[in-house]
Design a protein around this nucleic acid. Structure first.
Lengths: 192, 192
DNA sequence: GTAATTTATTAAACTACTTTAATTTTTTTC
DNA sequence: GAAAAAAATTAAAGTAGTTTAATAAATTAC
């Protein structure tokens, strides 16, 4: 159960057995069934979550009831709402499961203890955050510079595994277009 | 000259005099005149840059020659291209000065030395990054959920100081619309 | 395994935003 | 401070993407 997360960590920092054990001792295992929520708007996000199985989406619902997906998460990814987690303020986001999902959770309190006891984790979470930041900056630029068609083509090139797992409805909510328009784009692209 | 940056750091971590002195010793002062570049596409980004005076923009130029601004930076902000800085790969971004600007620079090498000598800086840059990450996630969501008009109104509400300092041309390149359309929006909003 | 629900497709009318181009206003430069 | 360059405005025609609605296909639920 802890294999994937230990490998994830080993990519960035080296832990001895005692540090590994301590880390594992602060994790909680949670199952989120398909369509169940990990977080709802207005909640305080109490945990950061490492996905060991399944698929989650982080999204908002606008004033017209339309969903907008800011990120997907699959195995080996961390998800949560960092703002709410850190500030203890209510989140603006929903997180729910697109497939039956299992996560390993760490609370704010435990993370603070972990930073104190094993300061290497400061580095680890800085590195995780760096990667996430770079990916986000890229996405902002893509949203500014590219048409919906280009963004769709880039998505299926960059995340072919993910494209297989999510519906077009979810993908359109991530790309920032309607499902109808995505369907039109696909038709047009097939005919080439 | 080092006042602002020391205050910026003191918001997040506490340094003793020796640590302050060491930190200052690894910084380089650089002046970037209006319209001059701090970084060009294809360069390797060798420094992170703290602005003590002036205004910078980070942007790409697409295949049609159109500029897209991913961020502005003013006094008290860090700018650079983290991806290129960390990976030593060529950047996709341009950074240039919208006003005569002064920055304090730290190289990758010196930052690594700093992390080793004063590990508290791991925490500092993690916190800086957290704030930047949260701001970016917000922007992604705004770009998905809001119309250009709403994004414009939000911008002038959230960054009134910045709006005074940048031209509409720059703002439109940040909002993801044409200068012509921004002008139309402004006209429409004034008449309310 | 069938009914119910959700997702995807198609078409047609619509709208937010772009493009082009001409004019005015502001800023920069020497 | 005059000339040149850049930015902003306006209008009109064009297009990428939306909306609505009807139908088909796929998935879910009991």
């Amino acid at each position: 159960m802890f294999d994937l997360i230990l490998k994830n960590i080993a990519k960035h920092i080296q832990l001895d057995k005692a540090e590994e054990d301590f880390f594992i001792s602060v994790l909680q295992h949670k199952i989120i069934e398909r369509k169940a929520y990990l977080l709802k708007e207005g909640d305080i996000c109490n945990t950061e979550n490492f996905i060991i199985k399944g698929c989650l989406r982080t999204y908002t619902i606008d004033e017209n009831g339309v969903e907008h997906i800011v990120m997907f998460g699959i195995e080996d990814w961390w998800v949560g709402d960092l703002y709410s987690f850190l500030s203890r303020m209510p989140t603006a986001y929903y997180i729910d499961a697109l497939e039956d999902t299992e996560v390993l959770q760490i609370t704010k309190k435990n993370l603070d203890i972990l930073y104190e006891r094993v300061p290497k984790f400061e580095r680890f979470f800085r590195l995780i955050l760096q990667n996430a930041f770079i990916a986000q900056q890229n996405r902002i630029n893509q949203n500014l510079a590219f048409t919906a068609e280009q963004r769709y083509v880039n998505f299926i090139q960059n995340y072919p595994q993910l494209e297989q797992r999510i519906s077009q409805k979810q993908l359109s909510a991530y790309l920032g277009i309607t499902p109808v328009f995505l369907s039109m784009l696909r038709k047009k692209l097939v005919h080439r």
